[in-house]
Design a binder for these strands. Structure first.
Length: 254
DNA sequence: ATGGTGGTCCAACCA
């Protein structure tokens, strides 16, 4: 089994990239973030033609998540319980005995902003929801664009980013709380290259200079970690013409 | 010191 996550920054613009990546990598499940279109506009037919079913949870202009898969997803959840949110940022489904939670965590803009307070309250609601999901599903993967770099090793310039948005103590604390629900950052189960990132700013030639952050994560339950065989980040799509600013991240297990 | 790119949609917001 291979599961993957990719913030595509508009599925309209990135449709060909995603179709090509699915055909070459053949993941069993791919979660998308920032589809940036209403649910009803999602190009399900294009994915069906190459053998992928889809579930979308979108809105006009901003946010939006989707799940593409070879088998049908069941027990779909498209909003966190007990958290009113007009922003479409979550989508969960079950594939066989595997539970998938696909997240687009709020960016937060800056640590002194209203959007940061929204991010922290959103993460508190997530903690409550995922603790319930973890009780119900032994094989659980919680993946997506977390908009949090777990550690300084996940940041190109830790001194410059210290305490800043995506790296603040409160954000990292919320991520650690989530991981204390027996969920591991699966990328670190394996030896990885230094300076491994999943997002590079479009500005200042961030990708060419590898000035990035690793903020796209696949958190895996103990039952998944014990059968994990490989994890990685595929930088190839980030080097294409008109790329997303994020690369797909993936986990394989038996 | 400032702003620098890109998507959505055409002014301004979000990242």
């Amino acid at each position: 089994m291979k599961v993957a996550s990719w913030n595509v920054n508009s599925i309209r613009v990135r449709l060909e990239h995603v179709l090509e990546w699915l055909e070459s990598e053949q993941p069993d499940v791919l979660g998308l973030q920032e589809i940036k279109m209403p649910t009803d506009d999602f190009p399900a037919e294009a994915f069906a033609e190459i053998g992928y079913q889809s579930i979308a949870n979108g809105q006009k202009t901003y946010n939006g998540v989707a799940l593409l898969s070879k088998q049908e997803g069941t027990d779909v959840i498209d909003a966190m319980p007990d958290f009113e949110d007009p922003q479409k940022r979550v989508l969960a489904a079950t594939y066989g005995d595997l539970r998938i939670v696909n997240l687009y965590v709020p960016n937060g803009q800056a640590v002194d902003s209203d959007k940061y307070e929204y991010k922290l309250s959103w993460l508190a609601a997530l903690q409550a929801w995922i603790s319930e999901e973890a009780k119900q599903h032994e094989k659980l993967a919680v993946f997506g664009d977390f908009n949090i770099a777990p550690e300084d090793a996940d940041v190109h310039d830790p001194a410059a980013w210290e305490g800043k948005i995506l790296c603040s103590d409160a954000e990292r604390g919320a991520l650690n709380d989530l991981m204390s629900l027996d969920l591991k950052d699966s990328y670190r189960l394996f030896d990885q290259p230094e300076a491994s990132f999943s997002w590079w700013d479009y500005r200042q030639a961030g990708f060419r200079r590898n000035r990035g952050l690793r903020i796209d994560l696949v958190l895996a339950s103990e039952a998944l970690c014990t059968s994990a065989t490989a994890a990685g980040i595929d930088k190839e799509p980030r080097a294409l013409e008109r790329p997303s600013d994020h690369a797909p991240v993936w986990l394989e297990f038996t």
